[in-house]
């Protein structure tokens, strides 16, 4: 616990432990936005050994399709990076989409539903500490319906990965404030595009369980609860999004 470390003046040291090399496991990351300017994007990769000095191993020759129940669109690999794109299909609020990936002789599928978007009220520099790495924003949670949110951030045109999610279990109908702490520092005059995604329960659960593992305190870390079948790691997210721009002072 952070508290104990604080009391004891805890110290840290890098060590070596012999770990098993399990897998490799297929990792699928699918995003389908309601923003027409965004193509459908599915990232298909493979897990690595813990000691490998690499970000990921891309998987090529996967057959990737997204369907809304009537039309099925096939995505094409882009730049041999394991990224499969299509500009032809977008999320529509109220619909459900099915992702299907056939790779390495196995079929992986997932279904995600698109919830109505929620607008961001205001964004401001977080006053909770003097470090330049926090941002806060407000939005009003719609009363009476169950909402799940995910946060996205783009700094100076570059997408940065953050896993913040929230629900409205305790805050239904209230003005919610979320703090974004992406793990890097903002600089003055950074152009920040902050996105609020309305996601479904499966995607919320994925990121919620993912965050539990990254805390120090997890007694029994386990792979996050994925909404993809057949043991794939990762998620499929069909969502609606609102974005607001903010210049960091």
């Amino acid at each position: 616990m952070a508290i104990v470390a604080l009391i004891a003046g805890a110290c840290q040291e890098k060590i070596d432990i012999k770990l098993k090399n399990a897998g490799p496991y297929v990792v699928i990351e699918g995003n389908l936005s309601d923003n027409i300017a965004e193509p459908a994007r599915v990232f298909v990769t493979e897990s690595a050994d813990y000691t490998d000095t690499v970000f990921f191993h891309p998987l090529h020759d996967a057959v990737v399709t997204i369907s809304d129940g009537f039309l099925t669109d096939t995505l094409k690999e882009f730049n041999a990076m394991g990224i499969y794109l299509s500009p032809n299909i977008h999320a529509v609020v109220g619909k459900s989409y099915k992702l299907s990936v056939f790779v390495k002789g196995q079929l992986y599928e997932s279904i995600s539903a698109v919830n109505p978007p929620v607008n961001i009220d205001s964004i401001y520099k977080s006053t909770s500490n003097s470090n330049k790495n926090r941002l806060s924003f407000n939005f009003r949670d719609p009363l009476g319906i169950t909402n799940y949110y995910k946060v996205g951030i783009q700094v100076n045109g570059l997408e940065r990965g953050i896993n913040n999610v929230a629900d409205d279990r305790l805050t239904d109908g209230k003005l919610k404030t979320l703090v974004v702490n992406p793990g890097f520092e903002f600089q003055a005059n950074d152009s920040i595009n902050l996105s609020l995604l309305s996601v479904d329960q499966g995607v919320y659960t994925y990121f919620y369980t993912l965050n539990q593992n990254t805390g120090r305190n997890s007694g029994a870390p386990a792979n996050p609860v994925s909404n993809i079948t057949n043991g794939a790691l990762g998620y499929f997210n069909a969502y609606s999004v609102t974005t607001k721009t903010f210049i960091y002072p």
Partner: peptide, 22 residues
């Protein structure tokens, strides 16, 4: 429970877990 591998998702590196308390 320690990881037995790692992977990349949402721009972050994550650990692969296999069995509990192994």
């Amino acid at each position: 429970t320690f990881p037995s591998g790692k992977y990349f998702v949402n721009g972050t590196i994550q650990n692969v877990y296999t069995e509990r308390n192994g």
